[in-house]
Structures are given as structure tokens and as C-alpha cells.
Amino acid sequence: MANFQQFFYQLVREIFTVSTTLFKVLIPAIICVKILEELGLVYYIGLAISPLMQWVGLPESMGLVWATTIFTNIYAGLIILANTPLDTPLTIAQASILGTMMLLAHALPVEAAIARKAGISLWITLLVRVGGGLLLGILLNVLYSSGDYFATPAHSLLHFEVSTDTSLVGWAKDQIVGLFIILAVISVLLFTLKILRILRIEKLIAIALRPFLKVLGISQQATSLTLIGITLGLSFGGGLLINEAQNGKIAARDVFTSIMLLNLLHSLIEDTLLILMIGADFYTIFWGRLIFAVSVIFIMTRLLDLLSEENRQRFFYRSVVKNSPG
């Protein structure tokens, strides 16, 4: 009984902490989007990004969803998605493409700062994450379109009916409903994560990923920390890698490879569960993301071998060892 009470107490505390932190970002984002709508700027933002959305087979309005995700986080992108009217529901293929792009490129102001602190050049982080998200979206669109795969409507758990009241009060009520739905999603997600940790699913994933890390040439010293980032998040793994790198325990080249992999592949459990909420295909957002991330970093490391160490540190990464002249 005591263990159950402790489990419940920790769960409630986590839900409160995550929700409070998240809503501090979400609420200003919702208000900003409303202001943009009232000023008519949403139309122009969508117009500017629409060519990119056409490349990946998504409605123009999804440009704002992805842009919101890139600058804030996946949760904010989801609530913008829930508030975006669509003539026809997204298909499973479209939900999978959008979800994959959100997984690869999100929260860049925060996560790019972590990578930069680890000595990684900002331009390569942005190129890999935004460019990688767009590239994978294009590849998936070509694949799905070639055989008309997953053309049935996606079943989104975030869908809710918006009232016909177009007043400011009506809009506010809709947003409150949306925030409660997000809170429910967070609660279910955190509960599921705790169960998965009890069942040691994270350790099983880490064991399965070790061969991939070996292929990428990531050293034994960096492997454990990279696996932490893959399962728990870039902030966790990246923070540990930065600490070890500053103490000179991990070479700058290993830090670069590990952080670049974490840029494309982190929070493998939590983020995957979150994107499944919009009706995306599991195999696409899990295995597709995994294979793409490993392939991109494998090619990148092989190309890096063609450069001298001086040029690598000039354009791609630098040493962050404390008191190091680099």
C-alpha cells in the first residue's frame, strides 16, 4: 500500500511539474497565434511555408503547426494542430509525415543551445534537424504516394469540437477545453512512462541500440550517456555528455557524433507515444526515425573522416574541455 501511495504521489507531482512548465509556454503561444489570426498574419505565414508543405504532401496550414513545434515544443505544436480547422481530416500517411517532422525538429531554441554548449556548430544542428525533418518528410511522401499507402483518415486522440461561438469569450472557452485535453494526455503519457520504466523497457531499448552506436563509431565512454539521451531526452543525455566533455573524459569527435545522433533521436519512448496521439503509424515514427537517424549520422561521420581535424574543429565542432584553448 505504501508503495502504491508513493507511486501515486510521484505521478501527481510529475504531472503538476510538467504541466506547469508546459503551460507557461503553451498559453503565450496560444495567445500569440490568436493575435496573428486577428491581424491576418497566419494566412501569410502559411503562404510563406506552403511550398514546403506541398513537398511533403501536407495541407498549407500544417506549416504553422511545424513552425510552432520548431520554436517551442511538440506539445505546443499539437495544441495548434487541434485548433487548426481542416476541410478533410489528415490521413494516416499525412499524420505520420507531420509527426516525423515534429519529432526531428522541435524546441530548437533550447535544444540547439544544448548542442552548442557541447561544442557543436549551430549551423550543422539546424541543417540536420530542420533539413533532416524536411528530407524525411519528402521521402515518406514519395513512398506513401507511390502505392497510396495509409490513405485512410487518421484517428487523432487530440480532436475536439470547437464551438460556433466566434467571440473572444467563446475562443477562450475552447482553449481551456484544449488545455484540459492536453493535461489528460500528459497524465496518461507520464503514467505509461512510469509503467514502462517499472517493466525495464528502457533498458531493453538501450540493449537493442548498442549495435547501432558501435556502427557509428561512438566510443564506449560515450555509449552509455548517448543511450540515456536516446531514451530519456536530449537535455538528460546532452547535459551528461557536456559534463564529461568539459572534464576531458570524452573526445570532441565522440561528443559531436553522439550529440548529432541525439539531435535526431532522443526521447524515443515519450515522443513516440506523444505523436501516436495524432494517429501516426508506429513503424514510421519509431523505426523510420531510427533508421533515418542512424543512416544520416553514419554518412556524416564517413564524410567527416575525409577532413583534417583542423577543418573539423573549424566548421563542425570544438573542444569544450575546461581551460582548453579551443
Rank of each mutant, 00 (worst) to 15 (best):
P153M: 08
I120R: 03
S96T: 05
A105G: 12
I124R: 13
V130H: 11
I97L: 09
P153K: 11
G131F: 03
A118Y: 00
A107K: 04
L134Y: 07
L127V: 07
L126I: 12
I120D: 06
A154H: 09
S121R: 13
A107N: 15
G131H: 09
D148R: 14
L136M: 14
L108S: 01
A115N: 08
L108W: 05
S121N: 01
L127A: 15
N141G: 13
S145F: 05
A118L: 01
A113H: 04
T152L: 15
A95G: 01
I120A: 06
A107T: 12
A154K: 09
T125W: 02
A151Q: 14
L103V: 03
Q94S: 02
A107G: 10
V142A: 13
D148Y: 09
H106D: 10
I97M: 09
A95F: 01
Y149R: 04
L135E: 09
G131T: 04
E111Y: 00
L139V: 15
S96A: 05
I97T: 12
G132H: 03
M101H: 03
A118V: 00
Q94F: 00
I138M: 12
L127F: 12
K117P: 00
L136E: 11
G99W: 04
V142Y: 08
P153A: 12
L134W: 05
R129G: 01
H106N: 08
T152M: 14
P109G: 10
G133Q: 10
L135H: 02
F150Y: 14
G137Q: 06
S146G: 10
A105L: 10
I92T: 13
H155C: 10
A154S: 13
D148L: 11
L122A: 10
A115E: 10
G147P: 04
F150T: 00
A112N: 14
S121K: 11
L135V: 12
V110F: 14
D148W: 00
L136P: 01
Y149M: 10
L139Y: 12
L140Q: 11
V128Q: 13
L98K: 03
L103Q: 10
Y144K: 03
Y144N: 06
L103N: 05
G133E: 11
G119H: 02
L122M: 12
A107S: 15
L104K: 06
W123G: 07
S121V: 00
I138K: 11
G133W: 05
N141Y: 15
M102E: 12
P153R: 11
Y144F: 15
G99S: 06
L136G: 03
G132R: 07
L104T: 13
A107V: 04
K117I: 00
G133F: 04
I92M: 15
G133M: 08
A95N: 03
M101P: 01
D148F: 03
Y149S: 04
L127D: 04
A151P: 02
Y149F: 15
M101I: 02
I120L: 11
P109L: 10
L134C: 07
I92G: 04
A154M: 05
A93H: 10
G99E: 08
A95Q: 01
W123Y: 07
F150R: 06
A151G: 10
A112M: 12
F150P: 00
I120K: 02
S145E: 11
V130R: 06
L139A: 15
T125N: 14
L140T: 07
T100A: 09
N141E: 12
S96F: 03
G147Y: 08
V110W: 04
A118M: 08
T100L: 14
A118D: 03
T152K: 14
